[in-house]
Amino acid sequence: MSDESTAAESVTDESAKSERSRSITLGDVEVIRVVEWQGAFIPARGIVPDSAPETWQDNADWLAPDHWQPESDAAVVALQTWVLRSGGRTVLVDTGVGNGRERPGSPRFHHWQGDFLGPLAQAGIRPEDVDVVVNTHIHGDHVGWNTVDSDGRWVPTFPNATYLIPEADDFHFGPRNAYGRGLREDDRLIYEDSIAPVHQAGQAVLWEGAHRIDENLLLESAPGHTPGSSVLRLASGGDRAVFVGDLLHSPVQILRPDCNSCFCMDAGQAVASRRRILERAAAERELVVPAHFGGAGAVEVRREGPDFTLGRWPFADLA
């Protein structure tokens, strides 16, 4: 997600503030959800432009209030990080917006001041404890806490971590491709404050195609949202999950997988990746874990004839 709209004022979910982290165990892997922010974002069909009004209205009984506010027609989203404790290591999946960033093209995130390290600490995770950082793609709300300001200089937040960054995104958004061909000033700023310092510290590892983290965790390319968009598959014991980044912004896209978000760069590739990942998730009973779902955050996906439907929300069971 990369906010380029000023529509719809932020409405923070107060219940989310009081319970910023919850965990479940999948096989031998502990999965902890750390929420940076949750609330109303932009209009529903602003974030998923091709979705029909009736899709939202016909599913209002479960979309509201966690994913949609019918009275304002605002989509509800979360900024969150998924923390995995796997094989004796701590892995972060995406790092949110970050504080004090210059984001003139994204008014909502411009000079953002939020609390992320606090909830992370409440979950028992110090920056020096993190072994691996996964950036599913290079958008400002997925790489922001890669770095922190140290005496006017951006330095890696997690000093002992390896940062796994998709090669295709590093090329597209970095200096080799003139920072996204210079189409958005924010792309250069994001790269310079959140990606370049990681390279300079020698902590960045670029990968393409697939990259195995350990026996439980495998990164795979799923392009379309960005050139290097990726998913992280978890397989441990009999449990399966797939962390899909921005492949999905709303549960409506599970019901209507041909509907892209307004932020997808290659519409055809994004649809193909979404359908492929959802097909496999339904077939292999993988828990689908998007970056921005509000409410319980992660959901089981099932086949219903030629379509998909939603199953259980495991994190809701912790309420």
Rank of each mutant, 00 (worst) to 15 (best):
E9N: 11
E9W: 09
E9D: 10
S10H: 15
T12A: 07
T12Y: 08
D13E: 05
E14S: 10
K17S: 13
K17Q: 11
K17T: 08
K17P: 04
R20M: 04
S21N: 15
S21E: 06
S23C: 12
L26Y: 00
G27M: 02
G27L: 01
V29T: 12
V29W: 00
E30V: 12
R33V: 01
R33I: 04
E36Y: 09
Q38V: 08
Q38P: 06
F41H: 09
F41C: 08
I42H: 02
P43S: 10
A44E: 07
R45V: 02
G46F: 04
I47N: 01
I47M: 05
I47D: 00
V48S: 04
V48R: 02
P49Y: 06
D50Y: 09
E54M: 08
E54R: 09
Q57P: 03
D58R: 14
D58Q: 15
N59I: 05
D61Y: 15
L63N: 05
A64T: 11
A64H: 11
P65S: 14
P65W: 09
P65F: 11
D66Q: 14
H67G: 03
H67K: 04
W68T: 05
W68A: 05
E71R: 13
S72E: 11
A74K: 03
A75N: 06
A75E: 07
V76E: 00
V76A: 02
V77H: 06
V83M: 07
V83I: 15
L84H: 04
L84T: 08
R85N: 09
R85F: 01
R85A: 06
S86C: 11
G87W: 04
G87T: 05
R89W: 05
R89G: 08
V91N: 01
V91K: 00
V91M: 06
L92E: 00
L92Y: 02
L92A: 07
D94G: 15
T95Q: 11
T95E: 05
G96V: 02
G98L: 01
G100V: 08
E102G: 10
R103I: 13
P104R: 03
P107I: 07
P107S: 05
R108A: 12
R108P: 05
F109E: 03
H110C: 09
W112D: 01
W112G: 02
W112V: 05
